[in-house]
Amino acid sequence: MTKELWLNLPVKDVLLSRAFFTQLGLPFNPRHTETDATAQCLMIGKTVVMLFPEATFRQFAQHPVSDTQTASQVLISIDAESREEVDALAQKAKAAGGTVFAEPGETMGWLYGCGFCDLDGHRWNVLYMDFNKMPKE
């Protein structure tokens, strides 16, 4: 059936968004050129995140772009290898100009994570799951 999952996100400035995610240490597909008019292809595992200029995104979606200051349409979650990686990504997001809306912390005794907004207000979760502490059913 499917080989990859592609998420398409509208952004106000493609190059600023690319710089933001590069500062987080996330890789881009080198086939995509660096211009402010073309999409950028962010790779997270086998998931592709395409960063499109808002006008291009509107054409593809045939729908207005959501106002991320007043509503969320999606929460994108990525896994981390450790608590330290969660902490580091929260700090990198702040340093790159993002906003941490949920400081790193533990919930349910086995889940450690944080939440941040990128430059365009899209919400991201970074989660470390300690399966050794996960309750058995």
Rank of each mutant, 00 (worst) to 15 (best):
L24K: 04
I44K: 03
T22L: 03
E137Y: 07
K46P: 14
T56Y: 13
E103H: 07
K92D: 06
F131I: 03
N125E: 13
L111A: 10
G45R: 11
T22D: 14
T107E: 15
T56H: 07
G97F: 02
V14H: 02
L111D: 07
M134A: 04
W6R: 10
P10W: 00
E54W: 08
K12A: 04
L42N: 06
T47H: 11
G115T: 04
A80D: 04
T68A: 11
V14Q: 05
E4D: 13
E137L: 10
E34R: 06
N132F: 11
W124R: 06
L7D: 12
A96L: 04
W110V: 00
E81M: 02
A102R: 15
V65L: 04
Q91W: 01
C114S: 15
P27S: 10
G105K: 06
T38A: 09
D36W: 00
Q91L: 12
M108S: 15
P104V: 01
A80H: 05
E85Y: 10
L51G: 01
A88C: 04
D118F: 11
T107R: 14
S77P: 11
E85A: 10
P104A: 04
T99R: 15
G109W: 01
A37H: 11
Q40H: 07
T47L: 06
C41L: 05
F131W: 15
Q69H: 14
H63R: 14
T2M: 15
